[in-house]
Design a protein around this nucleic acid. Sequence first.
DNA 1: TCTAAACGGGGACGCCCTCCCCGGTTATTT
DNA 2: AAATAACCGGGGAGGGCGTCCCCGTTTAGA
Lengths: 221, 221
Amino acid sequence: MATAAAPAERSRRVVRPRADALRNRERIVAAAREMFVEFGPEVPFDEIARRAGVGNATLYRHFADRAELIREVVCSVMDRTSEQAELALAEEGDAFGALRRFVHAAAEERIGALCPMLSGDFDKEHPDLDEARDRLEGLVEQLMARARTAGQLRTDVAVGDLMVALSQLTRPLPGSGCVNFDQFVHRHLQLFLDGLQAPARSELPGTAATLEDLRQKACKA
Amino acid sequence: MATAAAPAERSRRVVRPRADALRNRERIVAAAREMFVEFGPEVPFDEIARRAGVGNATLYRHFADRAELIREVVCSVMDRTSEQAELALAEEGDAFGALRRFVHAAAEERIGALCPMLSGDFDKEHPDLDEARDRLEGLVEQLMARARTAGQLRTDVAVGDLMVALSQLTRPLPGSGCVNFDQFVHRHLQLFLDGLQAPARSELPGTAATLEDLRQKACKA
DNA sequence: TCTAAACGGGGACGCCCTCCCCGGTTATTT
DNA sequence: AAATAACCGGGGAGGGCGTCCCCGTTTAGA
């Protein structure tokens, strides 16, 4: 019995994680996301642990250092955002309407919280990160391509333009979160989206960029 | 001799500031502005002093605490931005063109650096601050009113919308400044401005707000 | 019921920021 | 031009805070 290796045993690797351990890990990531959004990536680990309802030791047991936790949160947010993009692609008939829906949904996922994480000690080369970024970029590219093909999106913008502006506009104000700041965010996103519509009302300076360009530029800086 | 009070003595107050002291003060404010833009309001005083080319003691001699230095920098940036607004009002013929010119000029003044300063210990009630804010708001209101009257600006936006979005879009990425991030900023501002143009391409959620509303909301939070 | 993995919180270590002190330097006065 | 006093600069002590470990206790899993 005790040594009966079930067929599922292989998927458990060498040691199996306990059920509450997995649950705690998820709670930590969720709490970290909230704290990062509200106070930035420098928030003390102990505070994150308190928010998650676990001891600080548990946090250090799951994540070796801050960079690892940040990466986990970043990937998590990107994945959630990708899911929103897929929903928008699947459920929305109008091409530009899908883009609008995605943008507002991404704001709700607090994608702007990712911005402060691009600083400091943060391994931008991790494969998990590349995968999450590529997936998200591909989906957003699809959304934009459809709108562009439909003649609803101006032709001089790229994924990088949308994602950077989206991140910036949804970035939380540091310190105490403004009560109804969300309301403003969606107004600004709406205005920005109006600016993205075809026909273009002005000529843009510079050139469009992909997320890959941004990553390289960020590293180079 | 030593006690001979010259006629000009009255204008010198009790003690007269030395020439190099005044120069150092200006250099400190300028350096602080750069450092705040690049690293946020939590940047160490010693670093600011180093950038300014003065000793740290000189910095503490001129500013009692961090809040005082931050306030000085904030007022300085607002004043510079107000000057840009006046120039745009005076020199630009087209109403919306003046607005565009102001927005891009404000970005160059790094007005987005003000955002992180709204957090933490920061006396939002100081008269100098109120004065600078009122002046700037009045000028921007003029710019927007002219464009609105000319039928070039959508009617469902107010000063608060423009200033908050402007601050958000020009906020620097923390950590190492991205080399050609400026190029992106101006692209996004241009897109946002296109969304501000009349006729409105979509309906905005929520309601417009003035800077006064923002201040109260920020305090309330 | 038994075993061991996982948990939790208290506390020491170490870092960094703040602020003061004092010898040297520079602007101003006669 | 010399004297004087205000100002400057760098080094270092003090203090707060975040990180990380240790060990008694709890709880999932068999």
